[in-house]
Simulated scan of single mutants.
Amino acid sequence: MTRIISILVGLFFAGALAWSLLWDTLGLAHDGLPHTVEKAFHEHPKPLALASDGWFGKFDRQQLQRGFQVYQEVCAACHSIKHVAFRDLADLGYHEAEVKAIAAKATINAKDPLTGELKDRPGLPSDRFPPVVYAGQGVPPDLSLITKARHGGAAYIYSLLIGYQAQPAKLLKEFPDAKTPEGLFYNPYFANLNLAMPAPLTSEGQVTYGDGTKATVDQMAQDVSAFLVWTAEPELEKRHQTGLWWLGFLLFATVLAYMSYRNIWAEKKGH
C-alpha cells in the first residue's frame, strides 16, 4: 500500500511539473515573444579580438593598464570592482610603489586595531577596492565578474559601450508605443534596448593615455573590456599554461603507451 501511495505522489508531482512547463510554453506563444520589439531590434555583440583569446592567449599588459585608467577615470564613479585587491594590480605591470600610491588614494572604512571602532583610513595594497556609494536610484552592478556574468563576455561590454544611438525610425514606425522613456537611453545591444546608464564614453581624448595611444571611443571601449576580462579571470594565463602542460603530458603518455603496446604484443601477434 505504501508503495502504491509513493508511486501516486510521484506521478502527481511529475504531472504538475509537466503542466507548469506546458503552461509557460503556451504563455510565451500567446504573448508572441518572437515578434516583440526586443527580438526584432536587439543586436548580437560585435566581434572583439583580444590578446587573451584562444588557447595560447596572454594578457596585453599595456592594454590592461589603459583599461584600468579608463575604469578609474570614467567607470569608478558608479561601478565597483570589489573582488579585486589593490595588490593584484602588480599583475598588470605596476611597481610596488605605484600600487601603494593607487591604494592610498582610496578611503577604506575598517576597524581600528587598538579601539575596535570603524574608522576611515587610506587604503593599503592588501585591501580590496571599496564598494561605490551611489546616490542615484538603483545600484549599478559591480564589474569584477561582469564579463563572466553576461552572455558575450568582453564583446558584449565593448558593444554596449559603443552602441548608444538614436532609436531607428523603422522601430518607431513599426512600434509607435516603443519610444524610449524619458531618462533612459537606447542601445540595441542591451537586452530590452533601453537602459538607465548614459553613454560613459562620449568623445575622443576623454582620457589621456600615458603610452601615447590615441584614446578614441572605440579604443577606450576595447581597453576597458580587456581590463574587465582580467578582473574576472586574473588566473587566465596560468590556466592556459597548465592546460597546455597537461595536453603535452597526455600526448607523451599516449605515445609511450602505444610504443609499449607494440613492443609487448609484437611477438605474440606473430604466432
Rank of each mutant, 00 (worst) to 15 (best):
T2S: 13
R3H: 11
I4Q: 15
I5W: 13
I5K: 11
I7S: 10
L11S: 12
F12D: 11
F13H: 10
A14H: 11
G15F: 14
G15P: 10
A18E: 08
W19C: 10
L22I: 10
D24N: 07
T25L: 11
T25S: 10
L28V: 05
L28H: 08
K39F: 01
A40H: 02
E43P: 00
P45F: 05
A49C: 01
F59D: 02
F59E: 04
F68P: 07
V70S: 07
Y71V: 04
Y71K: 09
E73N: 11
C75Y: 15
S80A: 15
I81V: 15
R87V: 15
L89M: 13
D91Q: 15
L92I: 10
L92F: 13
Y94H: 12
Y94Q: 11
K100A: 12
A103I: 07
A104T: 06
A106M: 08
N109R: 08
A110E: 09
K111A: 07
D112Q: 02
D112N: 10
L118K: 06
D120Q: 04
D120A: 08
R128D: 03
F129A: 00
G136H: 04
G138N: 07
V139Y: 00
P140H: 02
P141N: 05
L143H: 04
R150W: 09
H151Y: 06
G153A: 03
A155P: 11
E182G: 02
E182M: 03
L184D: 02
N187D: 07
Y189H: 07
F190M: 05
F190N: 08
A191C: 01
N192S: 11
L193N: 03
N194V: 07
E204H: 11
V207L: 06
T208H: 14
G212F: 10
T213Q: 12
A215T: 01
T216V: 05
T216Y: 08
V217Y: 03
Q222L: 06
A226P: 09
W230V: 01
T231V: 02
E233Y: 08
E233N: 10
E235H: 09
L236K: 13
H240T: 04
Q241A: 15
F249K: 13
L251T: 14
L256C: 12
L256S: 12
N263H: 13
N263W: 15
W265P: 05
W265H: 13
K269C: 11
G270Y: 12
